Computed example of a mutant assay.
Amino acid sequence: MMTRTLPRFASAFLAAGALLALAACGGTTKDSPGTASAAPAQSSAPASANPAAPLKQGLKLAFLPKQINNPYLTILDNAGIEAAKEFAGTAKEVGPSDASASSQISYINTLTQQGQDAILISANDANAVCGPLKQARDKGIKIVAYDSDAAPECRDLFINQASSEEVGRSQVKLLSDMIGGKGEIAILSATANATNQNTWIEFMKDELTKPEYKDLKLVKVAYGDDDDQKSFQQTQGLLQAYPDLKGIISPTTVGVSAAARYISGSKYKGEVVLTGLGTPNQMKQFVKDGTVRKFALWNPKDLGYLAAYAAAALSSGQITGAEGETLKAGRLGERTIGKNGEIILGPPFTFDASNIDEFDF
C-alpha cells in the first residue's frame, strides 16, 4: 500500500525504536540524532520575536506523550523526531507506561536537568504537570503542549489538532446522522483528567442541547484510561448496562479500536453504531467487516511535525508565542498563533469504506 499525502484541507484533521532507561524515571527513551551537536538551553528567552532569525543548529527537543506505548502518540512523536533532522536538531521520546495524572512529573524534572531546549508534552492532567513545567521555563526551556493541553500559564504554545469545538460538535453530528437522530448514546473516553477529552466532551454535551438532537439521550460517559483491555471491558459494560444503546462515541484512538474489537465479535455488531477518533490502519479491518461505518481523525504525522517546528521557532527566537505571530513550519507552510498561544492544525476529515484504503498511517 502506498502512503498518500493528504490534501491541505484534509491532512490537518485525519484524522518504537531503541530503548534507553532514564536515570531518574526508569522509563523509555527513543532518540533520533540530527546532523549537529546540541547546545544547552539558554537561561533566558529573547525579549521579542525576530522572524528573520535562522533556526538554531543543534537544538535538543524531547517529546513527552501521555504514555509511551500509545500507537497514535508513537506515530505523532516519530514524525516530530524526524522533523528535527530537517533543522539539524536532535529529538527523542520519553514517557511513562501508564497515563495517570502524575506519571509525567519525574520525566519533566529529568528533562529539565538534562538542559533540553524544548519539552513537548501531551498532558495527562493540565494542572498536575504545571509546577514542574514552570520550573523548566524558569531555566529557559520552551514548553510546547500538543494533542492534550497543559494549563496555559505553564507552557508557551499549544499545538491543537483541530478546533476543540469542531471536534466535539462534529462527533455528535457524525453519530446522529448514522442512527437517525434518535436513541440512547454513550461516550467512551480516555482518562477522567485528560484535557482534550474533557473539552471535546463538554462541546458534545452542549451540541446535544440543540433542538435537532432532542431525541438523542446521553446515558453515560465511561473511562477506559487509554488502556486497551479496560476500554474493551468498559464497552462490554456499557452494552450490558444499557440494552437500548444505539451508539457510542469514543474520541480516543485506544478506546475506539478496543470498542470496535469487542463489538465486532458480539451480538451488537450491526446493531450498535460506533464512531470516534482513530487511525486508518488501526480501524481498517473494522470498517471492512462492517463494525464501523465512519470515524474521524487528523493526520498525527502532521501534528508531530508542526509541534517540532514550533518548538524550534520558539527556541530560536523567531516567535514568542504571542497571538498573531506567524510560524514557518517546513512542508506545512505558515501557521498563525491564535488566542492563548494556540496553533490549530486544521479542519476535520472523515474516514469510511470509500476512502480508507487511500491512507497508510
Results as ranks from 00 to 15, higher is better:
residue 8 R to F: 12
residue 12 A to V: 12
residue 19 L to P: 06
residue 21 A to L: 13
residue 25 C to T: 12
residue 26 G to M: 11
residue 40 P to Y: 01
residue 44 S to Q: 14
residue 52 A to G: 09
residue 53 A to N: 03
residue 55 L to V: 01
residue 58 G to F: 09
residue 62 A to H: 07
residue 64 L to Q: 10
residue 64 L to E: 11
residue 67 Q to N: 14
residue 67 Q to E: 14
residue 73 L to W: 05
residue 77 D to G: 12
residue 84 A to C: 09
residue 84 A to K: 03
residue 86 E to L: 09
residue 87 F to Q: 04
residue 109 N to P: 01
residue 110 T to K: 07
residue 123 A to V: 11
residue 131 G to Y: 10
residue 144 V to L: 01
residue 151 A to G: 07
residue 158 F to G: 03
residue 159 I to G: 00
residue 165 E to A: 05
residue 165 E to W: 10
residue 169 R to M: 12
residue 170 S to D: 14
residue 173 K to T: 15
residue 197 Q to T: 08
residue 198 N to R: 08
residue 199 T to W: 14
residue 200 W to I: 12
residue 201 I to V: 09
residue 203 F to Y: 14
residue 213 Y to C: 01
residue 235 T to W: 03
residue 237 G to H: 00
residue 238 L to A: 00
residue 252 T to Q: 10
residue 255 G to R: 08
residue 258 A to C: 03
residue 281 N to S: 11
residue 281 N to H: 04
residue 281 N to R: 13
residue 290 G to C: 10
residue 290 G to N: 09
residue 295 F to I: 10
residue 297 L to Q: 07
residue 299 N to H: 02
residue 305 Y to N: 04
residue 310 A to H: 06
residue 313 A to P: 04
residue 319 I to W: 00
residue 319 I to V: 10
residue 334 E to Y: 10
residue 335 R to P: 00
residue 346 G to H: 06
residue 356 I to A: 03
residue 361 F to T: 04
